[in-house]
Amino acid sequence: MSHTPEIEVENSVSENAVLDVLEAEAIHVFRETAAAFRNPVLLYSIGKDSSVLLHLAIKAFAPAPIPMPVMHVDTTWKFTEMIAFRNRRAEELGLDLRIATNQDAVAEGVTPFTHGTHEYTRVMKTVALREGLDQYKFDAAIGGSRRDEERSRAKERIFSLREPGHRWDARKQRPEFWRTANTRLSEGQTMRAFPISNWTEMDVWNYIRRENIPIPELYFAKPRPVVERDGVLIMVDDERFPLRDGEQPEMRSVRFRTLGCYPLTGAVESEADDLDSLITEMGEAKMSERSGRLIDGEGSSSMEAKKAEGYF
């Protein structure tokens, strides 16, 4: 290396080349999971990351079809638009779609309004996921988690092991060398695989733009009925939303940075109604992606605590 203080700064590396590397890494993980496990499943949560996963799966196995079923953990509180989008994509792509819902909890009347976010998440997401995986005897589940999402995710493996009962045990996580994965499972163990671990949120958006990947309209700004609670804008998506005294939904131009259960997903005021303006706006804001979610709670250890219970 030369000892010259003047280093030329130029855009010598294209964004596309970075995306090519990330895409290749993801495709490698997809293929490994499809081939090494007996009964793998692709977890699909309808959002932008899931949309990217679906697209990567198509590319990984082309010209063959996606060789595994797709499962959605449906809490019954997703945005109406999300469910419509899910059903449309499943039909267009000929997906083998499975839906996991905690029907017992629905019957018991568990809602985000009555049970607190932590308990609601545990019952409707974590338990529903566990039951869905058990019902179909899936031994590996591909998910869209990324290391940049949240600080404790920075240590997540690409192949993340779950003990019997889908429990995540920090000490059992396997060291990951090179591209070689230890995909062997002992009795009761299952695997989670994260093909887009090394992607940033911006990579996801740039890739969606480059590859023309369909995503739900909710990501783009448009006038929507919202109420403001504790400084967070919540969209009143259906008649189940219990309005407080004096609360009146008002139309504001908003979009969503992440998609989940509508009563727990904060909207962002925005005018960005297409990908280019969205990406520009994102570049200016620079808040943590999960800051708009109401379920993660305080401190980075809360994600580990949730994972220990079987949360994705």
């Binding site: 700064v9 130029e10 855009n11 010598s12 590396v13 294209s14 964004e15 970075v18 590397v21 290391r147 940049d148 404790s152 920075a154 240590k155 920090a170 000490r171 996580q173 671990s197 090394n198 940033t200 401190g299 980075s300 250890s301 580990e304």
Partner: peptide, 25 residues
């Protein structure tokens, strides 16, 4: 202090040239 596992952490940054650095800490 927080009882979080001591492990390799991965972080990402972009150099001004556009190059991505994946740091294994």
């Amino acid at each position: 202090e927080q009882g979080i596992t001591i492990d390799v952490a991965y972080r990402h940054l972009n150099l001004p040239s556009g190059r991505r650095v994946i740091i294994a800490d």
